Amino acid sequence: MGIDFPSAIVLHGPPGCGKTFAVERLVEFIDWPSYSIDSNSVGSPYIHETSKKISEVFDKAIDGAPSVIVIDEMESFLSDRRSGSSSGLHHVEEVAEFLRRIPEAIKNKVLIVAMTNLIEMIDPAILRRGRFDHIIEVGMPSREEVASLVDSLLSKLPKADDLNVNKILDELTGKALSDSAFVIREAARLAAKAGKTELDQTSIEAALNSLPKDQEKKSRRIGFVWDDK
């Protein structure tokens, strides 16, 4: 059918929607060597050094192909060169390095997966067809997805027979999957602290109440009081 090795993939969506989790499971499933590009691994304050480190990662991935390159927070390297937020020639050089290396890596059977919370900031030259063919929006988890995770976590713990799972799902649907995992862990900790031998509704509700409320987060302020004394 003339199908070539897949072009690069972008996953974009709000923080906590599960982009990183999805990429980790993909890498685990295909079981290829994986290489990471992020601000911690390749970022440098020195001119040319970041581009050099990016090139080294691509070289390693090509040498180890078939392999995977994971680009985390791609807006750190690949924001629009025309925007005021980009840092001059230094930034242009980094974008140019990606433009040069991505097609080469794809030809050498390197799967490239990038993630961003800010797809609107990415340079249009990077997102054109032939480099990133698949631009996939990842939304916050559905009720079904939350239920799958909660069921999996609860199956490993002793729990009360009258546990109201539907109430848990009502509270957690639309929140990050990390919140669901936290609630079950925190409920187990609270139950153990209270001397209980199983997870009960009281412990679950206490854990749910410890999650930050959206309204409270929006209204939080830091203020200063002037004291003439």
Rank of each mutant, 00 (worst) to 15 (best):
E97F: 00
L157G: 09
I184R: 10
I62G: 09
P66A: 08
K107G: 04
F224H: 11
A8R: 00
P14F: 08
D31M: 06
V183W: 08
S142D: 09
V92T: 14
P33W: 06
A147T: 13
A192R: 13
L177P: 00
L78N: 04
R220D: 01
E93W: 03
R221H: 04
V10M: 10
Y35D: 05
S41A: 11
D123E: 06
E205L: 12
A191E: 07
V57R: 07
L127S: 05
K217N: 09
E144I: 01
N40A: 10
E216V: 13
A125W: 00
K52D: 06
L211E: 05
I37Y: 13
S55Y: 10
V225M: 14
I204C: 07
M1Y: 02
E56A: 14
L172Y: 04
D4I: 01
L89N: 10
S55W: 01
F21W: 14
L149Q: 12
R131K: 12
E93A: 14
P14Q: 08
L169Q: 03
K167A: 12
I9M: 08
I126M: 13
A187E: 08
S87A: 12
D162M: 11
P15K: 15
G88R: 14
D151K: 10
F182E: 08
A160R: 12
E93Q: 15
S34N: 11
V113S: 04
Y46G: 02
R220F: 10
E198K: 11
D228R: 05
L190V: 08
A96H: 03
N209F: 11
M115G: 07
A105V: 05
S34K: 07
G84L: 09
T173D: 09
S39A: 14
S180E: 01
V70H: 07
R185H: 14
A96S: 15
I47Q: 09
V10S: 02
V23H: 05
S51M: 00
I71Y: 01
N108F: 06
E49Y: 01
A114F: 00
T20Y: 10
K159Q: 15
E28S: 12
